[in-house]
């Protein structure tokens, strides 16, 4: 690279360019971070641990591909993200066709079967989430995370994918290989249950 090019890059990039990977320090430097990243997206501790381990091993194998364009942590997180999406894909594989009219668990507890009206005990009520910032209010953040963890793995996968990056529904459906109608049924069920869980535990 010629000097002039290096000169035009901002400082951050120059530092990253000069920072080699330090795999001996990966566990101390990144293991907790990557684990926490995973557990907010995968509701299974054992699987989360495995994913962190696989990420480090894949990182070791791919070290020669590290170009120093991002920080070591960003690079490892990108590997991990792909691995998480792989697990989502496994969960959505072979999914049968879901319909809003299914009588199985997920939404029936909230509504009367025939006309679909809310059961009165499940009516959404004001419970003061309007002004909460979960990044400031740790207690609420904790409840929200716990409620997400309670969702069935498949729903959490689809729900998380929807909110993780600003990807379109089409992209999410394509990545998870699910139909648009299944996507909506799952999002609806996940949201109904998440909302109810928050109301129950925060009120």
């Amino acid at each position: 690279m010629n000097d002039q090019h290096a000169f035009t890059m901002d400082n951050k990039e120059i530092i990253a360019e000069r920072t080699p990977l330090k795999p001996h320090e990966w566990v101390n430097a990144h293991a907790d971070y990557l684990y926490a990243y995973t557990i907010t997206r995968v509701n299974n501790e054992e699987q989360a641990r495995d994913l962190v381990q696989e990420t480090f091993l894949a990182g070791l194998e791919g070290m020669h591909k590290f170009e120093g364009k991002s920080s070591e942590r960003t690079w490892l997180t990108a590997i991990l993200r792909n691995k998480i999406i792989d697990t989502y894909r496994k969960k959505t594989k072979g999914l049968k066709i879901l319909s809003i009219n299914d009588t199985e668990a997920g939404e029936t507890e909230f509504f009367w079967n025939e006309e679909g009206h809310w059961h009165q005990e499940h009516w959404p009520a004001h419970f003061g989430i309007d002004n909460i910032d979960p990044l400031v209010n740790k207690e609420f953040n904790h409840i929200l995370q716990r409620c997400m963890q309670k969702l069935p793995a498949l729903w959490l996968s689809v729900f998380t994918m929807k909110h993780m990056d600003d990807e379109t529904t089409d992209t999410v459906c394509a990545e998870l290989k699910i139909s648009a109608s299944n996507f909506w049924v799952i999002i609806h069920r996940a949201k109904l249950n998440l909302r109810a869980c928050l109301q129950k535990n925060w009120m």
Binding site: A31, D32, T40, L135, L144, M148, H163, K191, R195
Partner: peptide
Amino acid sequence: YIKQSQKIDLMVKQILKNTPPANIRL
């Protein structure tokens, strides 16, 4: 429900985009 659902989406996005909580450890 609309208001709460929109707020929940915002909060979940915030959590996923933010640095994961430091109190969770391997």
